[in-house]
Design a protein around this nucleic acid. Structure first.
Lengths: 349, 349
DNA sequence: TTGTACGCGTTATCAA
DNA sequence: TTGATAACGCGTACAA
């Protein structure tokens, strides 16, 4: 029968400990908070009694007074998706070391849900938020107001830049250009692109990188070879299916996928069409998902330092909260090209 | 300059809205909470003003009054590890649908850390906790007290059973027995076991299943062929290395790994020793990790319904919090054997 | 060294 | 229908 009043929790308060000892609540407060100016004997008595009674400080009450919750909100499109678990691990590590904890939320890539969870995080008075946004319009008013309200925000991976909040991401555009040029240097000319929604920051940046590489090397960008779809395996599968419906002579000889999950889906589609990778169609991805070196053939891709990105974003947020590194900045972590076998080569043949 | 007082947030309160309108805070409270007994015209005025002023209810204050935070703590050994991201996704989905959110914590498989985060969650007055415990002794006093204090707890995957809290897990022992018997039925007799710490619930249950299968089939359990190590890739690699140091005639002909990451590590060790899988050593895992069908050769394993497990655990916790399905229960979700190529066969040769 | 009064933002309760 | 008051648990500021 641990509960007396079904609507109340039965946790011990400062006042109750104080009453047991015939001292004031204030003295108990001082004792449990290691304040100076407490007689060492009374302090000892208090701490013993508090422990025996199972006293646990009530951070809800504390937060109400201090306006700090030591909690940060983390807003992510898909918790279990590809590189996000590693990002979260990085975030958790940094945040834990500063005595904060994370309220983890999932938006299912849906901006309406995103707004809903952010409102909930606001109501819970988190000290700041780490956000990977699924916003797909260029109407940033919602975030502008959020930032204007004084809420510390750091965007990561899928950023909304230059509206007053810091952004931690990778060099998406340059890396996408690099991996595209890698294909070009291997002799491919007719190259397709499997895109995610381009309104999402990474969608645009990576597509831009692809275009720059093509144009710089004097290759045509053929709209028929560019398919926009979701950021997951199914999105890649369906997009590739579309490309494969083109007459054989119009098909791309190589394909750049916006991320690894899309590449995996596309690889399945290529195999289902009884074509070979890379002999018939070469393919490259972006992420260096845990599966990238296990698929057949192993996927050439861009390694994204997910764990480090999480750490960096969390550090920046905590600095912003504590007004140390208060300045807004855009940080680009550097990726590296990981060449495996899915890109093959047209040279020396 | 969004902040006036550096120590205070500048969010709008009921009282401020009330002052603007010349009504009492109580009336505003009633209006924003859809209470009955508010004049529809004043209600409308209030809601408009509240919106314009950017009022967001302060759940911290609300929680102080109601002793409910609509937050549950999730305690996990390794956030980014293998099947936990899927579990968390299941948890998040259920919890979100009930208007709760999750405080996610990581224990790094360390019980001291586990206690620390649980104390923090208690201080934040979470309404309940979902715990996958790394406790490695049979001294359950810490959890017994936590449960006695009235904190709603549901263990999942790595459970501490029969101390007053519900447990949601898979049929570890039966599944481990099943996959071991699968090897036995394929003709293997000399079978090794790569264990995790047996003080962890799944460590013991799976090891028991292995033993039962061996004994039931009249096969010897050779202590030299049982290596205990961590639950991750490195643990598996090092454990397998040890087995491979045995003289060739003493080596196991097949190996049961406590989970897929351990199996992956072991496979690397086997390959590094220039032995073939399954021709020289067959191997099976447990989890059906996303990589299991991608490694070479694809891994025979036990499929654990991670997402469903998360959903079930979260549902049970919410019921416990709301005192609906208040009874304590142990639920076993059913796994299924996934036969791939890593187990080979000694039959028909 | 210890204690008292007050306020943090909200709601339950009772009074008007 | 609306308002005043007290309470949730704690810490700051001051007084004793």
């Amino acid at each position: 029968m641990p509960k007396k009043n079904p609507n109340k929790n039965n946790s011990v308060t400062l006042k109750e400990v104080a009453a047991e000892l015939g001292v004031s609540a204030m003295t108990v407060s001082r004792a449990v908070n290691n304040s100076p100016n407490v007689d060492s004997k009374t302090k000892k008595r208090i701490l013993e009694k508090a422990k025996k009674m199972g006293y646990t400080p009530n951070l809800v009450a504390k937060s109400l007074v201090s306006s700090k919750t030591y909690t940060v909100g983390v807003v992510i499109p898909e918790i279990s998706h590809s590189f996000f678990p590693d990002v979260v691990r990085g975030i958790e590590e940094v945040v834990d070391s500063k005595a904060y904890q994370i309220l983890l939320t999932n938006t299912s890539d849906n901006f309406e849900k995103e707004k809903k969870v952010i409102e909930a995080l606001k109501a819970k008075r988190v000290d700041g938020m780490l956000i990977s946004s699924s916003l797909m319009t260029d109407n940033f008013s919602y975030y502008k107001e959020l930032i204007k309200s004084g809420m510390p925000i750091v965007f990561f991976d899928r950023c909304i830049e230059n509206i007053g909040a810091s952004c931690i991401k990778v060099n998406d555009q340059a890396a996408s250009q690099q991996i595209t040029e890698h294909l070009i240097n291997l002799g491919y000319k007719k190259i397709g692109y499997l895109s995610g929604p381009k309104k999402v920051s990474i969608g645009k940046a990576r597509f831009d990188g692809f275009n720059i590489a093509m144009i710089k090397n004097g290759l045509p960008v053929d709209d028929k070879l560019i398919i926009e779809n979701g950021y997951n395996e199914k999105g890649g599968y369906d997009a590739m299916k579309k490309l494969l419906k083109l007459p054989a002579k119009d098909r791309p000889r190589a394909v750049v996928a916006v991320n690894d999950p899309v590449a995996f889906g596309a690889m399945d589609a290529i195999k289902d069409a009884n074509l070979r990778i890379p002999e018939d169609i070469a393919i490259v991805g972006f992420t260096n998902d845990i599966r990238a070196n296990l698929v057949t053939p192993p996927l050439t891709t861009v390694n994204q330092p997910a764990y480090e990105l999480g750490k960096k974003a969390a550090s920046k947020l905590i600095d912003t909260i504590q007004e140390k590194g208060d300045l807004v900045e855009n940080v680009e972590l550097i990726t590296n090209l990981v060449v495996r076998e899915s890109c093959g080569s047209l040279l020396y043949k």
